[in-house]
Simulated assay, not measured.
Amino acid sequence: MPNNPPDISDHGYDRPSKSQVKRDMLALQDLGRQLVDLSPDQLKQLPLAEKLFDAVRAAQRITSREGRRRQIHYVGKLMRDADADAIRRQLDIWENGSREQTQAMHRLEALRDLLLRDDDALTQLLDDYPGADVQHLRALIREGRKEARANEALQAGQAPQRKHYRALFQALKSLDADTEQE
């Protein structure tokens, strides 16, 4: 009868180590703690079982430190049955989505400033957005430039006018949103 030595790489175990199980459970508790910090509207958007949703809402209402800690521990226990990957993906979208929106707003602000400085920028914009309302954009740019000249002549302490400046930004924002929907 041949004596096969056990494979050294797995030490004869066919399950995760106790340390790995504990790390996984702590990760689920941390995820549960993140859920407790969310608003009720955000919680409703996540794929949570009713029991888990109720436990998270209960943890949000608890003010006692020890009671809250125990409730978060219970939320972590309930997280074993939840789709943690889907929850993490949604949390990541909420966190990183705001960065993308901020970058888009900065890009539109830079485009607005360029349009107010340079006539050729409108030609480039119309090449990028062929469905844009040319007359409306020209009127906003013209009024925005007048507004800027008037603001330069203001005395100290007078509030600058920003009506057309903001209107041009909103027009660019809606133009960008219309393009994304197509």
Rank of each mutant, 00 (worst) to 15 (best):
N3C: 05
N4H: 13
N4I: 11
P6E: 03
D7T: 09
H11R: 11
P16G: 03
Q20N: 15
V21W: 10
K22R: 15
K22T: 13
R23H: 14
M25G: 09
M25T: 05
M25H: 14
L28K: 02
G32L: 10
L35W: 12
D37Q: 15
L48D: 11
F53R: 07
D54K: 05
A55P: 00
V56E: 04
A58K: 09
A59Q: 02
A59F: 06
R61E: 11
R61M: 10
T63S: 12
T63W: 02
R65T: 10
R69N: 06
H73G: 11
L78K: 00
L78F: 08
R80S: 04
D81V: 03
D85W: 00
A86C: 01
A86N: 01
I87Y: 02
L91H: 03
D92R: 03
G97R: 06
R99A: 13
H106A: 13
E109W: 12
A110K: 14
A110I: 03
L125D: 05
Y129W: 08
G131W: 06
V134A: 09
H136G: 08
R138C: 00
L140F: 08
E143T: 01
E143M: 10
R145F: 12
E147T: 04
L154Q: 05
A156I: 07
A156P: 00
P160S: 00
Q161W: 01
Y165F: 14
Q170G: 03
A171M: 09
K173R: 12
D176V: 04
T179Y: 12
